[in-house]
Amino acid sequence: MNWVNAVVQGLLLGGLFALFACGLSLLFGVVGVINLAHGDFAVLGAYVAVLLLPSTATNALWALLFVPPLFGFFGYLLQRTLLQRSLEISPLTTLLVTFGLSVVVQNGLLEAFSADSHSFNVGSLVTSSFKVDEQLQVSYLRLGVLLVAIAVLSVLSLFLARSRTGIQIRAVADDREAAQMSGVNTRHIVGVAAAIAFATVALAGLAYGMTAQFAPYSGSALLLFAFEAVVIGGIGSLWGTLGGGLILGLAQSIGFQIDPSLGVLAGHLVFLGVLAFRPTGLVPARAAA
């Protein structure tokens, strides 16, 4: 092992975290929902793929075609029903509701699929990589995840900056009532934002399932990583989220390089360090993602 390798692998891992974080960030920025079931929904997405793919031999890349749209639809419905309803009571209620959903999803998956780990079949992609030098190999799959993360963030930024719906989403994030008095159907717009967030969650869950084994309880750790990426990068900034994801990936990878049991802890400590020493901008501004 060498340090260059640790840095490169860390950046690749960071792409996955950024992909996880962007849904969390969007949902909070626009909808005002902190989704404690975020990680569990990602894992649910992976299991939905397991369920719907015709056989375990089918290449899981096909799931990319139908699971994210399915989750987008699911996110829209969830927002328009349960989440909307709980938000009208208070943000803290929403928090508790998503926490309850998290427990329901985890244990539902446990009942349906047992505690055994699953993994996807992605054909030869799982092992193929290119060699930079003797000590540095880059997996096509992991590189692909990072590129997908960058692509998703780019498309999302462009969508929020240019499209009519995107501008309305940002307007709602700024001032929901003012958007309403300008004629924006805020409930629908918030639902659309939730749909996008859920589609990216499903995408992140599939990416995770292709690069690692997943089990019903995997979601909790994923939520924490996504959250850390958001806070490290600066709450409310989409590209900051990418930066936060990369920093978190680096911290875990370098920690792992020092001592394999240190990986996750190093990430947490970097997060706490940011919280302790760079608290400015950490108080969530309800700005657009």
Binding site: F28, V33, I34, L36, P91, L92, T94, L95, F99, L223, L224, F227, E228, V231, I235, S261, V264, L265, H268, L269, F271, L272, L275, A276, P279, L282, V283, P284
Partner: peptide
């Protein structure tokens, strides 16, 4: 001092991270 810098839902997840850190430290 740390977690009170976070509000609402971020406070919630922040406290969870702290619990994870304690667990990871203790098992060392």
């Amino acid at each position: 001092w740390l977690v009170f810098r976070l509000r609402g839902g971020y406070f919630a997840i922040g406290t969870w991270v702290v619990a994870e850190v304690f667990a990871l430290l203790v098992i060392r």
